[in-house]
Amino acid sequence: MTFSGSLSVRLAGLWVAVGAAFGATFAAPAWADPVTLNIVDVAGDLQLTQKGFEAFKAKYPNLVANITYTNAPAPQLPGKLKAMQAAGRSDIDLVLTGTDALAAGIQQNLWIKLLPDQAATFPGVLDNYAPGPRKMQDLAQGDGLEVAYMPAGPLLEYNPAKVGDPPKTPDQLLQWCKAHPNKLIYARPANSGPGRTFLMGLPYVLGDKDPRDPIHGWDKTWAFLKQLNDCVPYYPGGTSAVMKELGEGTRDMTVTVTGWDINPRALGIVPAEFRVQGFDNMTWVDDAHYMVIPKGVPKEKLDVLYKLMNFMLQPAQQALTYDDGYFYPGPAIKGVSVEQAPAHSQEVLKKYGRPEYTQMLTAHPHVLPLDAAAMVAAFQKWDRDIGAQKSQ
């Protein structure tokens, strides 16, 4: 016998009520309806994970009736969630985020604590991460699970027909920008992986006093960005707009990361022959995407979400994150090689990947992005002191 959604809920409640009337405690029968999950992506992560989510829905139709997907700007999400939680609403079940909204949500106490609170639900999850991703997982402070990983940058991407001798130091970049006003562009760091990687990587390249303290330790970085501001036309709200202008020839150079170099060229947005350049003494600032659950999600959905998150960290779903190079390489867990990726992903990386990345990734040190409070402080100071007059 099957029951409609409303009828099954009423019967389950009746079952418990009858038990209470007779002084007994009865568990409701296991005929809970499949749920609809609302997933919001503020990191472009669905490009890597949507096929995995759909595979979960197909495998467990008894758990998931439907999944809706929404894309949103990272800076706007925390305020929206805070308003919903204050109103006792729960319209968003799972958020896919980079370190930006992750940090803001941690600071504002928006996320459900997963670890160690739900450690039994995620057995051995921390041991399954590869070394680089394992360090990035610590940034979640137990509030989320890392689903994709990228040793990001900062890198410069340029049109070789217009830039014959690409800058190798920040000073060379500044001189090039002054000599070619309006030809360098980058997006607002609070909503751009390349933008925030550039922001967080500069203190290492410039030799600032404390690269982990944007307020008291970045004197050289803020001075440099203010000088650079004079020859940057404006700061787009996201990286996609930057790549469009670079590809169209409006700009000749931008800041980038490995994935935002490979993927737009694979998609034909940026010409395949465009090149990248790292700073001579660069330090890689790694990046990651996370799955986080906003507070207020009902229990019947939490059980499904926990199962879904475990599913997304299995090798088959992790291999999908190689994608079209968008978050290169992609997988966060150990032992997921490109040979396990779909054939199309392997073809894209063979054609548009860069052999020099292998050497570059081992030749320079790697660091974590700023922690939550410091990252939010860095974004706020950039918005106030650098981008206020030019952001769109």
Rank of each mutant, 00 (worst) to 15 (best):
L94F: 05
E339L: 14
M375K: 05
P294T: 05
L126G: 08
G105N: 10
Q389N: 15
Q380Y: 10
K220T: 03
A388Y: 14
L267I: 05
V242K: 00
L102M: 11
L81P: 04
K220G: 04
D143T: 07
L368W: 02
Q359E: 15
H180V: 04
G247T: 01
A316G: 15
G44D: 02
Q50S: 09
Q175K: 10
D286R: 04
F3Y: 12
F379R: 04
G19P: 03
S90A: 12
N66R: 14
E339C: 11
I333C: 11
L320D: 12
F22A: 14
V232L: 07
L361A: 10
Q47L: 08
T49I: 03
M84Y: 08
L302N: 03
A119S: 11
A190E: 05
L7A: 10
S391P: 12
R354V: 04
K80L: 12
G249I: 05
D213V: 06
D324W: 14
T99C: 10
G23S: 06
Q172A: 15
D230A: 12
E273Q: 13
K390C: 13
A32F: 06
I293E: 01
A179T: 06
P236M: 07
A187N: 00
P116Q: 01
E157K: 04
A87H: 08
D286C: 08
Y235V: 01
D210R: 13
G325T: 06
Q107K: 10
Q47W: 01
V242F: 04
G124H: 09
I67M: 11
P298S: 09
I293S: 00
Q318M: 13
K299L: 12
R251T: 09
M243T: 03
K82I: 09
Y357W: 14
T258S: 12
L199N: 02
D324L: 15
A130F: 06
Y357K: 06
V40W: 00
L139T: 02
N38S: 08
M375F: 07
K295H: 10
Y235T: 03
G330E: 05
F122M: 00
M136R: 05
M282W: 00
A103K: 02
A119K: 08
T99L: 08
Y235D: 05
T258C: 12
P170C: 12
K178Y: 10
D165H: 13
N109P: 05
D303G: 13
G132W: 03
H344C: 08
S337H: 10
W176S: 03
L202A: 07
T358D: 15
I386K: 01
Q314D: 15
A388H: 13
V376I: 08
N62T: 13
M200A: 00
G164D: 14
P342S: 07
Q389T: 15
A21V: 12
D303F: 05
A101L: 11
T99A: 13
F56R: 00
T169H: 13
E356L: 00
D252V: 04
L370Q: 03
L206E: 13
A72I: 09
A316M: 15
N310E: 14
T121H: 09
G5K: 12
D171I: 11
A24K: 14
D210I: 12
A319H: 11
D385T: 14
V304H: 03
V376M: 05
